[in-house]
Design a protein around this nucleic acid. Structure first.
Lengths: 164, 164
DNA sequence: AAGTATTATATAACTTGTTATACAATTTGT
DNA sequence: ACAAATTGTATAACAAGTTATATAATACTT
């Protein structure tokens, strides 16, 4: 067994470590979405959620809401448009702006997700992080070792209150 | 100002959030490396550190040590080879294995980094995370708001013991 | 009102990760 | 000892972010 250098180096490699945990969580989330037959990428979800929560938003506002750069947002929006979940219309007052809104199909996906999928994901992740406390490095170690034991998809399957 | 949806959704978007923090930290680290004129990418550093710490390693062992997949490791190793920091030789006992080791140039970069750069990065990151405690979501919020105030490159400039 | 500066989106090229798969070398089973 | 399975690395295609830059629309300045 080889030493986990990123873990050992601690603060020095914190960026790599955050990133690999993020990628792992996104991949595991994708797995859960596949179980439900959701036909989008996990990175696309926050865009639908943002519009659901705030109403139609421009490309720039979406980039800001999701916390990525504008070119990244532009690409994801055009994928979602391609898939028929959102449509765009040029703003009347300012023709540079494009307002992105949910189509009927997009609204249906969001409603379904809010009802069944998002609670499931949230349960899995909060189960993973529950009772975590203390210094950040220790929490990261705990998260990674939990994930090594069982992926997200094996967690949070039960509704609150249920027992195994 | 638009709501930060990834932050608001909490556990539901934890993967995206980890990833964006990791990317931010890697980018900021890169900035510090540029100040020192280090001619590599921040993602390549852990490979050099791993070999420095454990001696020559195979491609697979490096992938494991750094915590990424083997194809990713293969690419980074060949970049480092291209740049002249490592070289590879086929193992004698098992000709499938390639042992990666530091060249003289690689060793010089590692020695210089250990002396000047890594401590600098470590100070910056630990200053960023110091005194953090409590639930993971709160720590992430604190980290992101700290980074919004001042990038890593503006932190940890002083040696331990010094006062501003 | 015209010319310049700014803003919003789009596009191109790159980075760093991924999965799936091919291929060669070694190991295992009969 | 040979065939089949396994292992280690490489390659291809993709995902999701980045920076730098182009283009069109709007806003400012004089």
């Amino acid at each position: 067994m080889v030493e986990d250098i990123v873990k050992s180096l601690g603060f020095l490699c914190l960026g790599s470590r955050f990133r690999r945990i993020g990628e792992r969580l996104q991949a595991d989330t994708q797995r859960i979405m596949e179980e439900f037959g959701v036909p989008i990428q996990s990175a696309q979800y926050p865009f639908l959620a943002a519009i659901d929560r705030a109403g139609p938003l421009t490309t720039g506002q979406l980039a800001q809401a999701v916390g990525i750069t504008q070119p990244g947002a532009t690409r994801i929006i055009s994928q979602l448009q391609e898939l028929g979940y959102v449509d765009m219309q040029t703003s009347v007052e300012d023709q540079r702006r494009k307002l992105v809104s949910l189509t009927r199909k997009g609204r249906e996906l969001v409603d379904y997700s809010k009802r069944l999928i998002w609670p499931r994901i949230e349960r899995a992740v909060s189960e993973l992080c529950e009772d975590l406390s203390g210094p950040i490095l220790e929490q990261l170690t705990a998260i990674e070792s939990e994930l090594a034991d069982a992926p997200l998809a094996n967690r949070g399957k039960l509704d609150k209150g249920q027992k195994s």
